[in-house]
Simulated assay, not measured.
Amino acid sequence: MSQRSPENILLRLPKEEEEAVRAIYAALAERGFPQQHQRPHVSITFAPTMDTRVVGEAAELLPGLLPEALRRAGVVIFGTKSKQTVTWLLEAPDELERAARRLSAMNPDGRGERWVPHLTMGLRLPKAIVPDYVAALGEVTSPHFTEITAERAVFYQPRLGTEFAF
């Protein structure tokens, strides 16, 4: 059976911020790094098939907390094998953090009451290029790009190609 992308409850950025992140992806590709194709977002929780109770709770909790600014707090690298993912670590306001942790804890396929807010800047990169990628990311990112905006929350079902805004 082929692996498919999981269903997600995630936060979307405003169009202008999505475009700014895509411009960073393009600048990195111009330097010879792998092209990034993912749409910029911040995942709250995901599962092969999202439990409807989690979707319902997200619809109750998230709309009243958004839009909200998430502050860039550093770079985090996920993965220990031959492919790694480079991300911007984000700091969220307390209420949004509590809501995200609650949703993660409710998700039977989740990882308990955990949430590491981040925005993927380099997905599944060969481990050998990660140090150079991180250095280049710092060079092509404006020092004034210190926050991203979680504009809205959505339930994304990639298998169906649908996205439901809360």
Results as ranks from 00 to 15, higher is better:
residue 1 M to C: 03
residue 2 S to W: 07
residue 4 R to S: 11
residue 5 S to K: 06
residue 7 E to W: 13
residue 8 N to Q: 11
residue 10 L to F: 00
residue 12 R to I: 00
residue 13 L to Y: 06
residue 20 A to C: 10
residue 20 A to E: 15
residue 21 V to I: 14
residue 23 A to N: 15
residue 24 I to L: 13
residue 25 Y to R: 05
residue 26 A to I: 06
residue 30 E to C: 13
residue 30 E to S: 15
residue 32 G to V: 02
residue 37 H to Q: 08
residue 38 Q to V: 09
residue 39 R to F: 11
residue 41 H to I: 01
residue 41 H to S: 04
residue 42 V to A: 10
residue 44 I to S: 15
residue 47 A to D: 10
residue 48 P to R: 01
residue 48 P to T: 02
residue 49 T to S: 12
residue 50 M to I: 02
residue 54 V to S: 07
residue 54 V to H: 10
residue 58 A to V: 07
residue 58 A to R: 11
residue 59 A to T: 12
residue 60 E to K: 01
residue 61 L to T: 00
residue 63 P to F: 06
residue 65 L to S: 03
residue 69 A to M: 07
residue 70 L to F: 13
residue 74 G to R: 08
residue 75 V to Q: 05
residue 75 V to G: 04
residue 75 V to W: 07
residue 81 K to L: 09
residue 84 Q to G: 01
residue 84 Q to D: 05
residue 88 W to I: 09
residue 88 W to M: 08
residue 89 L to D: 05
residue 90 L to R: 03
residue 90 L to D: 08
residue 92 A to I: 09
residue 92 A to L: 08
residue 97 E to R: 04
residue 97 E to Q: 04
residue 101 R to W: 12
residue 101 R to S: 10
residue 101 R to M: 14
residue 102 R to L: 09
residue 107 N to F: 05
residue 108 P to I: 09
residue 109 D to F: 11
residue 111 R to W: 01
residue 117 P to A: 12
residue 117 P to M: 11
residue 125 L to E: 07
residue 128 A to M: 11
residue 129 I to D: 02
residue 130 V to R: 03
residue 132 D to C: 01
residue 133 Y to T: 01
residue 134 V to G: 04
residue 134 V to N: 07
residue 135 A to K: 12
residue 136 A to W: 01
residue 138 G to L: 03
residue 139 E to D: 14
residue 144 H to C: 04
residue 145 F to R: 05
residue 146 T to P: 09
residue 149 T to Q: 07
residue 150 A to F: 00
residue 150 A to M: 01
residue 150 A to S: 04
residue 151 E to P: 09
residue 157 Q to Y: 01
residue 163 E to C: 09
residue 163 E to Y: 05
residue 165 A to V: 12
